[in-house]
Simulated scan of single mutants.
Amino acid sequence: MAGRELYVSAPGKVILHGEHAVVHGKVALAVGLNLRTFLRLRPSKDSSTVEINLPNIGTKFSWNISDLQVLVPSFQDSPENEPVSPSPQQLTILKTFAGISSETNDTESLAVLAFLYLYLSICGQKLPSLEILVWSQLPTGAGLGSSAAYSVSMAAGLLAAGGKISYPAQDNSETTRWTQTELTLINGWAFQGEKVIHGNPSGVDNAVGTWGGALRFQAGKITPIERVPVLQILLTNTRVPRSTKTLVAGVKDKLLKYPNIMEPVLSSINAISEECQHVLQAAVDRLSKEQYSILEELIDINQHHLNVIGVGHPSLDRLCQVTACHGLHSKLTGAGGGGCAITLLHPDIEPTVVDSVKQQLSDCGYQCWETSIGAPGVSLHSSSSLPEDVRRSFQTA
Rank of each mutant, 00 (worst) to 15 (best):
D363A: 09
E350A: 15
E290V: 14
K289W: 07
N172P: 00
G334W: 05
S62P: 00
L116D: 05
V23P: 12
P264A: 03
R286A: 15
L185M: 13
I132T: 04
I349R: 13
S330N: 12
P73N: 01
I261W: 09
G199L: 11
T184H: 10
P229A: 03
M262C: 07
L29D: 06
Q90I: 08
G162P: 00
A98G: 03
P86M: 06
G209T: 07
G327Y: 05
R318S: 14
L266Q: 05
I269Q: 02
L130P: 00
L266S: 03
T176F: 02
P376Y: 07
S78L: 04
L295H: 09
R318Y: 08
Q395C: 11
V14E: 13
L159H: 02
A10F: 01
F115M: 09
W211Y: 15
L185W: 00
G250I: 00
G213L: 09
A111K: 06
P259M: 07
H198T: 07
L54P: 04
G145R: 12
C325I: 01
K60D: 04
E182F: 03
T210N: 05
L144M: 14
V22R: 09
G336Q: 06
G338K: 06
S9D: 15
T323N: 08
Y150H: 01
L159W: 02
L295F: 07
A397M: 14
C364H: 11
S362Y: 01
L256S: 15
V204H: 01
D389H: 09
S383G: 00
G203I: 13
L266I: 10
R36D: 08
L144Q: 14
I301Y: 01
E131W: 02
Y292D: 11
K358D: 07
L68P: 15
E131N: 13
S267T: 10
N172C: 04
S173K: 10
A271I: 05
G327A: 11
S173T: 13
L185V: 06
N200E: 15
N200C: 09
F191D: 08
R42F: 10
